[in-house]
């Protein structure tokens, strides 16, 4: 499936830190296979931030976990490849994946309030990550010095190092998680709803700081969030997922200004925007697709106002609509019809 130009890129070394090709991952359950990730393809440039959005249950966390090599026992990557800095990750043994985890890809979790083990100090838990990934493992003093630096970077007092998680507020815990994610200089950080549990003001602060840290340290970040406004602010690229598939991918400003997939449009416009004109459009109706027995053809067609007969028979593939902007829809040119600007 790789195009000639893609393989030439690989040979010459590209500017991409992450290249995901045709990634397909199913969960095996009693009711059948949950087709949570299907044919996902995207590249991520060094030092870029990509936002991944979509309704609850569309497979965002599943993509993240596949990248981390942290899938549960019933999950299976059926095909595809994940190349991190040129190295293939699919097919590595558990032990090889473990060694790379946190050293190459770190993660800030959904619901990080309980991300800390209550019986160890925060410093202890960060040292643990350092001890298993730095070569050679540093002394406690060296590790502590590094953690103190990171604490200052994320806005925590270095003295908090030897405190227990219950002595931290929610926002402080999340900052500490970010410090921990930075502790092994990863090439990529995945932030899966990093701030959902926090209040709005703290959310803002933390995301801004994360953005600043990214600019300073220059790693790539994948943001996963329901909060589309946040994604718009901190990412260069945005990917829209529907029912396990990537349906639209492109530069954030362009996708926001001019979404070409009907789902992308309805999703982006369904969040009220304070700036900009008010819009009238067809609401996003219906239930999210069942991932065990997804609809044939385009998975969105049962809910799509533009759907034609063809949509239920053929599966649309990603197609470039403008440089760097891809859409998986047969009728993307008509999408704009839905976006009627109102008063």
């Amino acid at each position: 499936m790789t195009s000639p130009s893609a393989s030439a890129d690989t040979l010459l070394g590209t500017d991409n830190i992450l290249e995901v090709d045709d990634l397909t991952m199913y969960y095996k359950t009693r009711g059948g296979y949950v087709k949570a990730v299907e044919d996902i393809t995207f590249d991520l440039g060094k030092q870029t931030a990509l936002g991944l959005v979509g309704e609850s249950g569309c497979g965002k966390t599943s993509v993240a976990m596949s990248l981390m090599g942290l899938l549960p026992g019933n999950a299976e990557i059926n095909k595809g490849s994940i190349r991190l800095d040129g190295d293939e990750l699919v097919g590595l043994t558990r032990e090889e994946l473990r060694e790379r985890r946190w050293r190459d890809i770190a993660m800030v979790f959904q619901g990080a309030m309980n991300a800390w083990n209550p019986v160890y100090t925060v410093g202890d838990q960060i040292r643990e990550a350092i001890r298993y990934h730095w070569e050679p493992a540093p002394s406690v003093e060296v590790a502590n010095a590094r953690i103190a630096e990171l604490f200052e970077l994320v806005g925590l007092a270095p003295a908090m190092l030897e405190r227990y998680p219950h002595e931290f507020s929610g926002g402080m815990r999340q900052r500490a998680v970010i410090a921990m994610a930075l502790s092994c200089d990863p090439k990529l950080i995945i932030a899966d709803e990093p701030t959902t549990a926090l209040d709005v003001i703290v959310q803002e602060q933390i995301l801004k700081e994360l953005k600043k840290i990214q600019d300073d340290l220059g790693m790539a970040i994948i943001y996963i969030s329901h909060d589309i406004a946040v994604i718009a602010e901190v990412t260069e690229q945005i990917g829209i997922m529907y029912a396990g598939r990537l349906v639209e991918l492109g530069p954030t400003p362009e996708v926001f200004a001019d979404p070409r997939h009907p789902y992308g449009l309805l999703l982006l416009r369904s969040t009220p925007s304070i700036k900009g004109p008010r819009r009238k459009l067809a609401p996003l109706v219906g239930e999210p697709a069942d991932l065990v027995n997804p609809p044939p053809g385009c998975r969105f067609h049962p809910r799509c106002p533009l759907a034609e007969e063809r949509c239920a028979q053929e599966t649309p593939v990603m197609e470039e609509v403008s440089p760097g902007h891809q859409v998986a829809c047969f009728y993307w040119e008509r999408t704009a019809e839905l976006d009627i600007e109102g008063v």
Binding site: L70, R101, M107, F109, N114, E128
Partner: peptide, 17 residues
């Protein structure tokens, strides 16, 4: 089932730990 177990796994420390 706790979140911190997921964190510990994500940290890439040995399963025994």
């Amino acid at each position: 089932r706790e979140d911190y177990i997921l964190t510990a796994r994500a940290k890439g420390i040995p399963e025994r730990v």
